[in-house]
Design a protein around this nucleic acid. Structure first.
Lengths: 345, 345
DNA sequence: CTGTTAGCGCGTTCAT
DNA sequence: ATGAACGCGCTAACAG
């Protein structure tokens, strides 16, 4: 049985190696100015005693400067964005307890210049930035500049793949589109007909990727279903309702796939048409509204990314980076959730 | 803008309130022996300065006694159990960095007496226990005793609902069964026929609950599908293979639902029968094997509980309880994952 | 190259 | 009822 009921400390290591605290500290933190021979002795002692630094003591001694983070969220007030905000408010409390403070900014998702300008203005004030991104030269440049200035940067929900960020925290949208297509195909039960596609804007990388994944699978696996050209509703309920009504004119409409927000508009059109039970409706993001539509049967499946998980993951990644602490990679993987009526949380 | 670039400390509060550190500490930790008037002054200062204790300093000062946790996992060597073990090994490293050490024990899931005996023997040695459970009087009693002895206790993966544990960390198995049924019904595409059910043992609460949820939904929503009486394969691949072969004799077999482990046996029977594409196969737990079956199309959907999440959650809950630190409830909710070919992590 | 020492923010005696 | 002082394990000057 292990006799380590009381923690092994730096002192123990120093004693075991026959050196002083400072020397042990130097080799542990890879600082220069230690003879190779002593390095060896210290390392031997460390592994012999199975020493692990106490993170609490490290944090305390490393100094008390608080960190400042900035979260840039979409300006659009969709239910999903509301979820992100409320989860951020929760997480902010935890961050405060870790001596990190967050500011929230909003940016128009549809305008790369506004986002880039905002990012450029974040300048010296923050230690870390978590932001939605756009795959646009100015945005990439702004992100790269922040990274070059030594700030911790992560992209959230939507990515700028070639930018120099620490990590993208969000789902693989092409895979999400494929997932939607497979569900659509299987739920369609060999029926033949058309599938109506609705996007917020195909200029948005995530919507474009979802579309790509969706049509790819639909065409190759379910040729009896024909994906219609996507209509752009700008994530707006009214516009989406009109688009859905248009689709519902088609007698052979088998299903609707909304790749963006604005599910309420689609559901309203479906319910008004009287074809809600028959026409398959698949959308994204579990919100109070989509929950209702799933329960009612108006919506058949909801592809989700966990807003709370994304926000917490961003917080952990930024914090760990600034504090040079390790992460548990498995914990940071954002999954593509499938929700149907029966497995909602 | 807030001027709190440097953290507000106990000292600041003491000064603001015109008292000493010790007094502030007394009111913060609710210790007796402080005049009501001074309590008021201190509390005023705390909220005025928006003081939050530094958890690192608290941990450091609270002393160096390490914690000991015990994780009791199933003795059966299924892939899911392997996943639990390997995730526990990861998490154990993190726990060590938090001055907590874990031992792992194994218990036969099918024998309540063995489990109860093990739990009873855990006696004085541990500060916290995370264990699979069984809804059995002796197990409940053992759990209650541990709780009464002041140990932190959580049930993992399978629950003993009426026992006095801190929390059950696992999924709602009835809901998981309903989820499987809805997927089965929708994938079946209005076909008429039978569904073969396979369980590890119906004496296990989780398998019984899955069966209940499954048949409930199937009977009420998909009367064209007829659930066959469940066969018990004890989570064993060989037994399950035989059971599946038996089911596959039925010409009108539409699908197979395996509520337990041993998916390899079922898949083998399916693939040997030549009906793998036609017969719907739904099972539980995403493992290297079920991933393969999903990719191949042998398996149509996999209901999952995230082993890594469960282990980490158990670790966080035990640690937070022992350290009297708060939790983020949203983070501890274990979801019922649905995986199909396209959304595997 | 190596050792000494003074804190980091808080809990906890022991005095007063 | 209140305060002073020491120590938790580690980092960061500053000496040698």
């Amino acid at each position: 049985m292990n006799s380590s009921f009381d923690r092994v400390t730096l002192e123990d290591v120093a004693q075991e190696a026959g050196v002083s605290l400072a020397t042990v500290d130097r080799v542990i933190n890879g600082r220069p100015g230690v003879h190779d021979r002593t390095i060896g002795r210290v390392e031997a002692a460390i592994s012999k005693l199975n020493y692990r630094p106490d993170p609490a003591a490290v944090r305390l001694a490393r100094g008390s400067k608080s960190l400042r983070f900035c979260f840039v969220l979409p300006a659009s007030r969709t239910s999903f964005v509301e979820l992100l905000s409320s989860q951020l408010a929760e997480t902010a409390k935890w961050l405060e307890s870790q001596r990190a403070f967050v500011d929230v900014r909003e940016a128009d998702v549809f305008d790369p210049d506004i986002l880039a300008t905002l990012l450029e203005s974040l300048g010296e004030r923050y230690d870390g930035i978590a932001t939605i991104a756009l795959d646009h030269p100015r945005v990439r440049a702004a992100l790269d500049d922040l990274a070059a200035a030594g700030k911790a940067v992560v992209t959230l929900v939507s990515d700028a793949p070639t930018a120099n960020r620490l990590r993208y925290i969000g789902i693989d949208n092409a895979a999400a589109g494929r997932t939607a297509a497979t569900l659509m195909g299987r739920f369609a039960a060999r029926r033949t007909g058309r599938i109506g596609l609705i996007a917020g804007s195909l200029a948005l990388r995530d919507h474009a990727e979802r579309r790509f994944g969706f049509t790819q699978v639909l065409e190759s696996e379910y040729p009896e279903l024909c994906a219609q050209p996507p209509q752009e509703g700008r994530d707006d309920n009214e516009r989406n309702r009109a688009i859905a009504e248009e689709f519902l004119q088609m007698p052979d409409l088998v299903g609707l796939y909304n790749m963006g927000a604005g599910n309420r508009g689609v559901a309203a059109a479906l319910e008004a048409s009287g074809r809600a039970a028959e026409v398959i409706f698949i959308g994204h993001e579990l919100t109070p509204h989509t929950r209702r539509f799933l329960v009612r049967g108006t919506m058949d499946a909801c592809i989700n990314q966990d807003a709370g998980h994304e926000i917490r993951s961003a917080a952990r990644v930024l914090l760990a980076h600034c504090l040079k602490e390790p992460l548990m990679p498995d914990q940071e993987r954002i999954r593509i959730d499938i929700f149907i009526r029966d497995n909602m949380p």
